Every structure is written in C-alpha cells, then in structure tokens.
Simulated assay, not measured.
Amino acid sequence: MTESIDRPVSVIGMGNMGSAVARTLLDRGHPTTVWNRTADKAEALADAGASIASSAAKAVAASPVTILSLLDNTAMEDVLDAVGDSAAGRTLVSLTSGSPAQARANGSWASGHGAAYVDGKVMGDPPDVGTPRVSLAFSGDRDTYASVEPVLRELGSVAYHGEDPGFAAVEFNAQVAVGYEFLIGFLHTLDLVETEGMDLEAFSERVAGSLSGYAGLVRMMATAIKSRSYGPDLGSLDVQAALMDDLIEHRESAGVESVRMREVKSLMDRRVAQGHGDQGFSSLYELFRLRA
C-alpha cells in the first residue's frame, strides 16, 4: 500500500459510506477533497484534514481519481451531469449501488467525456471500511483498475471481476441474493421448528455447524452445470422427489408455509418426467435455461 501514499483522491458523497471512505483515505495519508450536495456533511471532514470543494465538478478536477459514493444511480446521474467535461482525463470510481445496466451506462458516459471508469460495489458496514471485513467488487477497464488498485486496497479486501463494467454489480447482486434466499428459507424453517416445540437457539446452532459442508457442494454444482454433466449430488431426483412429499406434508400439517417446497417439488417432477430421474439437484438448472 505504500506506493499509493500521498496520492490525491476526491470523494463525492458524504453519507455514512462516503464519509468512512474519505476518513480512511485521510488516515492513510492521501490528500483528500470532498464534496456533498448538503454542504455541512462535507464540512464535517474539514477537521480531519479534507479540502472542501464548492462543486462536484471542482471536486473531480482537484484529483486524478474521484470515488463516488452516492445514494443511488439517480444521484449518480445528477452528479455526472453536473461534472460534465471536468471529468476529461480523470478516473471515476463508483461505489454507488445500482444494476449492471446502470454501471455500463455510467461507463459509456465516462468514455464519452474522456474519462476512465471503474465500477465498484461494497459488501460491509461503514465502521469497518479500511479493514478486511469490508469486501469490494470491481469491474471495468483492466489497466484503469490496475492503476487505482493500490488506493482501493486501502478500503478493504478487493476483487476484480473483469472488463465489463457491469460485472461488479452482477457479483454484488448475486452475493446478496444468495444471502436473502437462504435467510428467508431459514426463517420459514424456524417457524416449523418453533411450531413443533423445539428450541430455536439449539437448532440454529446445529445449522450453523453444518454450513461449512455446503462449500464443497456449491463448487461441485457449478462444475456440473458448466460441464452439463449431472451426477446424483444430493441423491437421484426420483428419490429426492419422494422426500419432498414428506417435507411438504410436514409443513402443511403444522400450518407452516410450503410454497418454496412445492416449487422445488414441481421442478423435480418436471425433470424426472423428462427422463432425468437419475440425475441430481444441480440438473434442475437445465429448467432455468429454457427461457422464452
């Protein structure tokens, strides 16, 4: 990280995350210029040594690299419109939430204004910025990313996902979605466990202990999908489909929601009907590929 010390950086957006980013850069010795639409939020960084820009355009002009940490892509578009030609010759790094399509549009805007662009997404909490507890996903032009990587590493653990500016958003959205998909299923399962009179904390402790076992499974499933070679990972689908009947009956007899279990059972039945009952759970992916 020593090669990036004293490298000037601007930060636009002084919400919780943007302020944490600016303070971290200041603590690491970077001359830091900040700007926020609401001026008092930016001025709060002055005591920490930040220079306060009077406009977004002047903030971008003040440093070779500008990090944008804004509420959403609407705010991002407003800032880019205000920056305009001041972006020419500068590198813009976005840490703003948004879709892959929005990231690609921002990249096109930057290119059209003579600027380089790297899109980024943050997984972590503002108090942890500057530590390995924060993970940052980046994508965009490889050479541009390499040039700013030493600065970005000051903020947490970083990973580069390719030249398509949208890939960081794909990574972020997919990682978050996995968490929500798991957790909503877990909440419904806790409803079942509590309804049956078992101890929630003891059950949750057992679940926590078994999670590491899924690491090998998810890797194996990705390999199977990529090769289109589906072994009986969790067991053959014809056996799993019979188990699903028991799971559904258990939930419904206890008055617990079973929509997701019925969806899984329906997918299994379709795959078995296609003559693939000897394959495993990962083969259900073939049904998702059949988009109109």
Rank of each mutant, 00 (worst) to 15 (best):
residue 181 E to R: 14
residue 60 V to T: 09
residue 52 I to F: 07
residue 135 S to T: 14
residue 233 D to G: 13
residue 262 R to Y: 06
residue 7 R to V: 13
residue 33 T to C: 00
residue 145 Y to V: 12
residue 205 E to T: 14
residue 62 A to W: 04
residue 14 M to H: 07
residue 177 A to N: 12
residue 238 D to H: 12
residue 159 A to C: 05
residue 131 T to F: 01
residue 266 S to L: 12
residue 100 P to N: 04
residue 247 L to M: 14
residue 283 S to W: 05
residue 244 M to V: 05
residue 41 K to A: 03
residue 184 I to S: 02
residue 147 S to A: 15
residue 280 G to I: 10
residue 124 G to S: 09
residue 91 T to C: 01
residue 33 T to N: 00
residue 35 W to S: 05
residue 36 N to S: 13
residue 145 Y to W: 11
residue 99 S to W: 03
residue 280 G to F: 06
residue 225 I to N: 03
residue 151 V to D: 00
residue 88 A to D: 12
residue 25 L to F: 02
residue 203 F to E: 08
residue 46 A to S: 13
residue 243 L to S: 11
residue 245 D to R: 15
residue 23 R to E: 14
residue 276 H to F: 11
residue 79 V to K: 02
residue 155 L to T: 05
residue 278 D to H: 14
residue 22 A to R: 08
residue 275 G to T: 12
residue 97 S to F: 09
residue 258 S to Q: 12
residue 251 R to P: 00
residue 236 S to R: 15
residue 258 S to R: 10
residue 187 L to G: 00
residue 32 T to W: 06
residue 275 G to N: 06
residue 96 T to S: 07
residue 277 G to Y: 10
residue 276 H to Y: 12
residue 215 A to I: 14
residue 50 A to K: 07
residue 277 G to C: 12
residue 194 E to F: 02
residue 204 S to W: 02
residue 139 S to K: 09
residue 75 A to H: 08
residue 213 G to V: 07
residue 172 F to E: 13
residue 221 M to I: 10
residue 131 T to C: 02
residue 89 G to R: 05
residue 82 A to F: 04
residue 76 M to S: 14
residue 122 V to H: 03
residue 74 T to N: 11
residue 182 F to Q: 08
residue 207 V to A: 01
residue 38 T to V: 15
residue 141 D to P: 01
residue 218 V to D: 01
residue 13 G to K: 11
residue 26 L to S: 02
residue 73 N to V: 03
residue 115 A to R: 00
residue 251 R to I: 07
residue 86 S to Y: 06
residue 212 S to H: 14
residue 223 T to Y: 01
residue 279 Q to I: 10
residue 270 R to I: 13
residue 280 G to C: 08
residue 85 D to Y: 04
residue 28 R to D: 11
residue 198 M to C: 11
residue 265 K to D: 07
residue 270 R to A: 15
residue 284 L to R: 01
residue 65 V to Q: 05
residue 184 I to R: 06
residue 40 D to A: 15
residue 56 A to T: 10
residue 252 E to P: 04
residue 10 S to F: 08
residue 283 S to N: 08
residue 255 G to Q: 05
residue 174 A to C: 13
residue 240 Q to C: 00
residue 224 A to G: 01
residue 195 T to N: 06
residue 145 Y to L: 08
residue 115 A to M: 05
residue 249 E to I: 06
residue 265 K to H: 15
residue 193 V to S: 00
residue 71 L to R: 12
residue 92 L to W: 02
residue 179 G to C: 11
residue 244 M to G: 01
residue 227 S to R: 15
residue 189 T to C: 04
residue 127 P to C: 09
residue 259 V to N: 10
residue 118 V to G: 03
residue 82 A to N: 08
residue 213 G to C: 04
residue 113 H to A: 03
residue 39 A to I: 15
residue 292 A to Q: 14
residue 246 D to R: 13
residue 23 R to S: 15
residue 150 P to D: 08
residue 91 T to D: 04
residue 21 V to I: 15
residue 128 D to K: 01
